[in-house]
Amino acid sequence: MSEASLSVRAIVIGASAGAIETLIQLLQPLPSSYRVPIIIVCHLPASEGDNMLSIVLARHCQLQVKEACERETLCSGTIYIAPPSYHLLLEKDLTLALSLDDKVLCCRPSIDVLFMSAADALEEELLGILLTGANADGADGLVAIKQRGGQVFVQDPVTATVDVMPRAALMALKKSHLSADAVENTQGLTRRLLSQL
């Protein structure tokens, strides 16, 4: 166990096509006492203001799951989900912020926006995880996290429902002469979350 992993203060997760099942697999085993707060951006069609993903995840997870509210301070034992149609950002004082700024790579919420702001806020105390998806969102964000000294996990593309997003991220890391700290299937990633943090 590396020393750095002890000091992880937040985990950011990005997922797109195929996200719901993958997130359930990844997060269901985490106990309600899990220390590190988790923030998720997931591309889903905006359905009348209701955050479907938080309802589904809440049903399956032991951790508390909620839609992220503006200005909310991160708490242990909680999974925060970006509300549909808003970007979600992490401020340096570990409060969450929302914005309606332009879409990034056709996405709002954007994984890159969350990841980059969190990388700025927490630097080496951040872990980023990128899962299944059909576009390149999250790739730049993961690079930003690594450049600031944080850790990144990527779902093994071979095991992803849709492999475009994890592949794009691995490519982007390679281009910047960086590499992921883990490339594994969800069980492997969950095991790391349980043993390291």
């Binding site: 950002l89 401020e91 340096k92 912020a97 914005s99 700024d101 702001s117 700025d120 806020a121």
Partner: peptide, 9 residues
């Protein structure tokens, strides 16, 4: 203004 999104802009 909130810093994180201002910085992006």
């Amino acid at each position: 203004y909130a810093k994180a999104s201002l910085k992006r802009r």
